[in-house]
Simulated scan of single mutants.
Amino acid sequence: MLEKLKDRVTPREPEGLDGFSALRVHQDGAVLSVRFDRPETGNAVDSVMLDELLTVLDSVHGRPGIRVVVLSGAGENFCLGGDRQEFGTEIASDPAGDGIHAIGAKARRVCEALATVDAVTIARVHGQAIGAGVALALFCDLRVGADDSRFRMPELALGHPPAWGGALSRLLLEVGAARIRELVLTGRSFYAAEAERLAVLHRVVPETDLDAAVAEWVKPIVRRSPAAQRTTKAMLNAYAASSRLADITLLDSELLAASVARPPRSARGR
């Protein structure tokens, strides 16, 4: 990947970031590539993947040589959303919703880490990005998508609010209330061209050109001052946060758990 930027360094698995089951991670110079590696599930996001993403993103703070993190998906799709089977298992074993609350809290930490990590984060999107997949892409600093990629926020159809990782807040900030209201309430799919108009994507290219598009962004980024880059990211996040009176995303895990929790048997039928 990123042929123009190999810098005569063979891609390798960074020390301490191997042995993952849900991710494939390798470093190529200043670029850390993180690929969702469960194509058989459409790269559905479960607790294991969230834990591994947190490990990777936390490690970037201790690796100042990493200037860019590229997020991508194996197989036909970027990410088909949260793991519904895990949700079902958690609800069945814990109807009060504590397990769902824990998943939601992890999701928020991952999305916050994508937005605030010192490295510039880039989402390389192909196929479908649904629900949690939209959120993970949206929290990256830069987003490029294949021209046939497709997006959807299906949470209402699944019986719960869009309360995963702070996605709704990020959508409102990046896109705007009127358009997001329509997409969230209807749950309709939208394609790459519309995603670019909405700023869900910054660029749209043929799928075969995705790596080249990422490389075009990476090349100038790695030449910049690391200190200036860190400060600029902090400023951008601070100015964005200043437009909100409070961080309502802190309630996302509570809202998600409450929406799927089942009342105890003693309370049913009253």
Rank of each mutant, 00 (worst) to 15 (best):
M1R: 12
L2R: 07
L2S: 13
L2Y: 10
D7L: 11
T10C: 02
G16R: 01
S21P: 03
S21Y: 03
A22M: 09
R24E: 14
D28K: 05
A30R: 10
L32Q: 06
V34A: 11
F36K: 01
T41E: 01
T41S: 07
N43L: 02
N43M: 08
A44Y: 07
V48R: 11
V48P: 05
L50N: 04
S59L: 09
V60H: 12
H61N: 12
H61C: 05
P64L: 04
G65V: 04
G65Y: 01
V70C: 05
L71P: 00
G73E: 05
E76Y: 00
L80T: 15
L80Y: 06
D83Y: 00
D83G: 09
D83K: 08
R84W: 01
E86M: 07
F87K: 06
T89N: 13
A92C: 02
A96Q: 07
R108C: 02
R109Y: 01
C111N: 13
A113E: 09
A113V: 03
L114C: 09
A115M: 11
T116Y: 07
A119M: 12
T121C: 11
T121W: 10
A123N: 06
G127Q: 09
I130P: 03
G131L: 09
A132M: 13
S149T: 04
S149V: 03
R150A: 14
R150N: 11
F151K: 07
L156P: 02
L158N: 10
L158G: 06
P162C: 07
G166V: 01
S169R: 14
S169E: 08
V175S: 10
R179H: 09
R179P: 02
E182W: 01
L185H: 09
F190Q: 03
F190S: 06
Y191F: 15
E196R: 15
A199M: 08
V200Y: 07
H202S: 13
R203T: 12
V205W: 02
V205N: 01
E207H: 09
T208A: 15
D209A: 14
D211K: 10
A213Q: 14
A215F: 08
A215L: 01
V222A: 04
R224D: 12
A228D: 15
Q229M: 15
M235L: 15
M235E: 11
N237I: 01
S243P: 00
L245D: 07
A246Y: 11
A246D: 13
I248T: 13
T249C: 12
T249L: 00
L250Q: 13
E254V: 05
A257N: 03
A257I: 02
R262W: 05
